[in-house]
Write a protein that binds this DNA or RNA. Structure first.
Ligand SMILES: [Mn+2]
Ligand SMILES: [Mn+2]
Ligand SMILES: [Mn+2]
Ligand SMILES: [Mn+2]
Lengths: 219, 219
DNA sequence: ATTATTTTTTAGGTTTGTCTAAATTTTAAT
DNA sequence: ATTAAAATTTAGACAAACCTAAAAAATAAT
């Protein structure tokens, strides 16, 4: 089946929202897409007709199996393009999301196959998020935010959930990127701030807000 | 100013048509875009309001200076992407047009600047057509079709105007590509066919139709 | 258990880009 | 110079995707 740019954006947003809460609500989706609840309801009816989601009036909705498959293929395109933009074109990773938001809608399967080959089948995008494979299979990475990780345990940064320029600026300052090794040395209960030791650098303190946005691998 | 995908497609098509005939007609544009004359008239009014073209009812229309600039930036994006698809992703050049037709509308100047850097500032696309530079400057390549080139003169293939898979198949058979050196040895007036000698290969005969679609540099 | 608040849906409109059919203008043919 | 044909424009409609305002349903508060 074929989907419009708008439909694809809705499908992808529903997918992301239902990672957190199984059943998605009209308001949360409207908020995510920066649109009006009435518009969401309109689109839901369309997607229901296309048999992409389960929808019970006033209750909520979720993608069904084929909806998830569509979503994962959009996510795949998005993350492959992000990877391309950073590793090949030299973009910083706070600039790639908006562009990938457009590129993800270019609808040639052959293009994505060849792009994936060209990039040597990357498994994670520049923000550390896993790239679904051709068949829609996505690695489930067990993660924990720095705010929750045990003290004095060596961990590796897996992803960063806030991808704003301001966040990137701060991370550069702390010498933190995807793959960086670090360890939490002290936790301060007054403001939730955390002292960390990043590879060979002197220990430093990060705010609770920053700590909550940095995720590390967890077994 | 900002243009929709549809507007961009119209602008680019007008640009291409007015390379041949200064004043473009409604029917020819409708034919080019596979749409209806009435739709063309509608769009012309919109583009006129946006001060992109000169338009006299029932007479015809042409892009003005700023319209041409917009067109050239779309052509630039299209051809850079085609170059990328062939040289980096390994597409054959009969497959890239449709994909570039979508990619050209991704609207990030920074993306195109970086793509151009990444590709090392190519000056021609895979079909031999010149790529306009950042400022909209496009090389005017003097060309002559093989059907018109003088006999026994060594020439170099500059571009191929028919980009169908069938044409590509034939050209591969003849060992002809962009940059190939060849020379017309005999011209047969019965059917307009032409005997050519391609680099080190034995002479061969190409039909008038093929000859008319292959262009060579001309001083 | 009512009442108030919030969430969601419906009703009715707007914009963009398309279409068909009819009217108008231009061009070609007699 | 008329008439016929072709090209172009106008008129009116339609689908997609959005909106606001009002109605309906679900939740929360008294
Ligand atoms: Mn998008
Ligand atoms: Mn990402
Ligand atoms: Mn296009
Ligand atoms: Mn080309």
């Amino acid at each position: 089946m074929n989907f419009s740019v708008s439909e694809e954006n809705y499908i992808k947003s529903i997918y992301h929202l239902q990672q957190q809460t199984d059943l998605v609500t009209t308001n949360s989706l409207a908020n995510e897409l920066q649109t009006r609840p009435a518009s969401v309801t309109d689109m839901l009816k369309k997607l229901q007709v296309k048999k992409i989601l389960e929808y019970e009036k006033y209750k909520g909705f979720r993608l069904n199996a084929s909806g998830k498959k569509v979503a994962l293929s959009i996510v795949r395109r998005h993350r492959l393009w992000e990877y391309f933009l950073v590793t090949k074109l030299g973009f910083e990773w706070d600039k790639v999301h908006a562009i990938a938001e457009e590129l993800e809608h270019v609808s040639s399967p052959e293009l994505i196959r060849k792009l994936d080959d060209f990039l040597n089948h990357p498994t994670a995008d520049p923000h550390g998020d896993p790239i679904p494979d051709m068949h829609g299979k996505i690695a489930v990475i067990k993660q924990l935010s720095i705010a929750d990780v045990p003290e004095n345990k060596n961990v590796v940064v897996s992803s960063v959930s806030n991808q704003s320029p301001d966040m990137l600026e701060l991370l550069k300052h702390y010498h933190i990127g995807i793959g960086t090794g670090l360890k939490v040395t002290t936790r301060f209960s007054f403001d939730g701030s955390v002292e960390i030791k990043v590879s060979k650098y002197a220990p430093c303190i990060i705010s609770e807000l920053v700590a909550k946005n940095i995720f590390v691998y967890h077994d």
